[in-house]
């Protein structure tokens, strides 16, 4: 049996919407409503484009709507539709604008751009040219490098793991007291995309070192430059990459 075009359109849109809602129901990882709105907009557009790309398809889609409006024999159905459609539209509008106690959506960038240079440990560092002084030992002296990674691990477990967790996934003991949660270093979108100088900046200057743009920030990261040495910071960076298996962004092989 051939499904009428208009019905097919409704079925496709409903099924796709269900697919987008599924991760929220089954995996506890809801796709944000803002994104579902964008997804659905383009799904609807694409289905319409496909269906109207031929004259036959266009008639199949528009024909029933045209008949509903123009055909005198469909007067009763028309009246029902003309009552239901405004009611549905009104209900959706009401849902959108009704007062809510929920805090407003945050439209902010969580990914700050680093400054050109920073002053920490009584020195000025140009982040453009700054490199981890121990990185070269990975090839030149693997034994020494492993030792440094181990020392970095000690720094991590003495200072960082309370928030960032023993698996570096941002789920430390104190993590649930923060919103947003501490950064998950095992996420491919975090340290794997960054240069080591970026991490040096974020660790050394913490939340207060974040740029003025897009302030106020809600980072709880302490200024580790006040508690750790420059060497400690470089070592803990080695550890972060070594543990997660990621390689810092660089322009060299």
């Amino acid at each position: 049996m051939k499904i009428p075009r208009l019905l097919l359109f409704v079925i496709i849109v409903a099924v796709v919407y269900g697919i987008f809602k599924a991760p929220g129901f089954f995996l506890k990882q809801p796709i944000p409503s803002s994104l579902i709105l964008m997804y659905m907009f383009f799904v609807v557009i694409t289905v319409l484009l496909w269906m109207t790309s031929t004259e036959e398809g266009m008639q199949g889609l528009v024909g029933p709507i045209k008949a509903l409006i123009e055909d005198p024999g469909k007067k009763r159905l028309r009246n029902i539709v003309f009552v239901i459609v405004p009611l549905v539209a009104g209900f959706i509008t009401y849902q959108q604008i009704k007062p809510s106690y929920e805090a407003p959506v945050e439209l902010r960038s969580i990914h700050p751009a680093p400054p050109a240079s920073i002053k920490v440990f009584n020195k000025t560092f140009s982040l453009q040219t700054l490199e981890n002084p121990y990185r070269k030992l990975e090839k030149e002296d693997p034994a020494k490098f492993t030792q440094l990674v181990k020392e970095g691990g000690e720094v991590y477990f003495k200072n960082c793991f309370y928030c960032h967790g023993d698996k570096l996934n941002g789920r430390g003991h104190y993590a649930h007291g923060f919103n947003p949660l501490p950064l998950n270093f095992t996420d491919i979108g975090t340290i794997a995309q960054l240069q080591e100088s970026f991490l040096f900046w974020r660790i050394s200057t913490g939340g207060p070192g974040l740029p003025k743009e897009a302030a106020p920030w809600i980072s709880s990261m302490p200024i580790w430059g006040n508690f750790l040495t420059e060497d400690d910071v470089w070592k803990v960076i080695l550890f972060l990459y070594n543990y997660t298996g990621y390689v810092p962004r660089s322009w060299e092989k």
């Binding site: 809801p30 944000p32 409503s33 994104l35 929920e102 959506v105 945050e106 439209l107 990914h111």
Partner: peptide, 9 residues
């Protein structure tokens, strides 16, 4: 980075 309601966050 997604635009999230506090509930989604």
């Amino acid at each position: 980075t997604l635009i999230l309601t506090p509930g989604e966050l």
